[in-house]
């Protein structure tokens, strides 16, 4: 980890000093323990602030489309080269951006980092049952937490991985300009779609109950949408008023319509980075829903998201012998 971090800083310094990038997106220490925060580095000297550890959870790809968006009036975009630090999942989001023509490849420097799985802060907080966390650091596969009484608690990192990391199949970025060498990434841990299958097998009423229960918690803050690298539309259907696709009330059906719209927009595009679920303040199980689509896209169209820029998106192409059974 430490080695990766120093190599990362060195690479960043070099890229900036040689003018290969004007801006570099990475992580720096957050103001709270167990957190890093995204940072935008444009000066060589700032590169020492970059960090790499098991708390680099944010998907930084979310910032890319905005950085390259043309000015609405002049329709021109600012010339700049952007470097971005990516884990496997973030990289697959970038592949999506390239595929969807949101980001010019020639102006992008992808700095890949093999990922060993990131920590879910909420799981640690839950484990400590109300104790306040004053300090946290990482040491030999363990997380060292200091609580408000100065007591040190050691936690095995493996028990606190994010759910999305536990089923991740691509810890190594599939596309990069520079790969920071580091410890080899781990294997995916559990049956990939176990939780989706479990829900599929329940009765229709139980499935509805699940959906209704999850949706009833939603406060429509749209954090899930804002954290998602796919949701780059300047104007979201959720806010459009001509036509008004979804009502803006807190009526359960409007909340459901928003989610169905959002989730369906991720079809064939979601890389299961987990950013939506991590951002949700209400702890809604959003990944179970998006993963159902990932599973079906794989089953129906044999498509895996974010591994190839050239392969056309599954909903923008077809085969003559696609499944027809369900049509009268």
């Amino acid at each position: 980890m430490k080695q990766i971090q120093s190599r990362l800083r060195q690479t960043a310094r070099q890229l900036l000093s040689e003018g290969k990038v004007d801006l570099l997106i990475g992580y720096r220490q957050g103001s709270l323990p167990l957190k890093t925060t995204p940072c935008f580095v444009s000066q060589e000297e700032e590169a020492v602030g970059l960090v790499w550890n098991s708390f680099c959870t944010n998907n930084l790809a979310v910032y890319l489309p905005g950085l390259f968006r043309p000015d609405p009036r002049s329709r021109k975009r600012e010339e700049k080269k952007v470097g971005i630090v990516v884990k496997g999942c973030d990289c697959r989001s970038v592949v999506g951006h390239l595929k969807e023509d949101q980001v010019p490849r020639e102006d992008l420097v992808i700095i890949g980092v093999p990922c060993q799985g990131m920590i879910d802060e909420k799981k640690i907080v839950a484990k400590l049952e109300g104790k306040e966390i004053i300090k946290a650091k990482e040491q030999d596969g363990q997380i060292l937490v200091v609580d408000e009484k100065g007591q040190e608690i050691r936690l095995a990192k493996g028990n606190f991985l994010r759910d999305s990391c536990q089923v991740c199949q691509h810890p190594v970025p599939p596309l990069y300009d520079i790969l920071i060498e580091g410890e080899t990434a781990r294997q995916a841990l559990s049956d990939e779609y176990a939780e989706v299958k479990e829900l599929e097998e329940r009765s229709i009423d139980q499935r509805w109950e699940f959906f209704q229960r999850e949706m009833s918690k939603c406060i429509r803050c749209y954090a899930c949408r804002n954290a998602c690298p796919l949701c780059y539309c300047p104007e979201c259907f959720a806010e459009q008023s001509q036509p008004r696709w979804v009502g803006t009330t807190d009526d359960p059906s409007d909340i459901m319509a928003f989610h169905l719209g959002r989730i369906f927009h991720t079809a064939g595009r979601c890389v299961d980075c987990g950013a939506c679920e991590a951002a949700c303040p209400m702890g809604i199980e959003l990944r179970k829903l998006t993963r159902k689509l990932i599973k079906d896209v794989e089953e129906l169209f044999g498509y895996e998201t974010g591994v190839s820029v050239e392969e056309p998106p599954p909903l923008a192409t077809y085969k003559l012998d696609d499944d027809d059974e369900f049509i009268k």
Binding site: I204, D205, Q206, R207, W208, F210, L260, K292, D296, L315
Partner: peptide, 23 residues
Amino acid sequence: SGNYLARRKFALLKRFLEFIGIE
């Protein structure tokens, strides 16, 4: 090719609606 594209979209939608409990 409109109906071929529609077929893919609706294959997913149909499964998804049933997944969340729409009969």
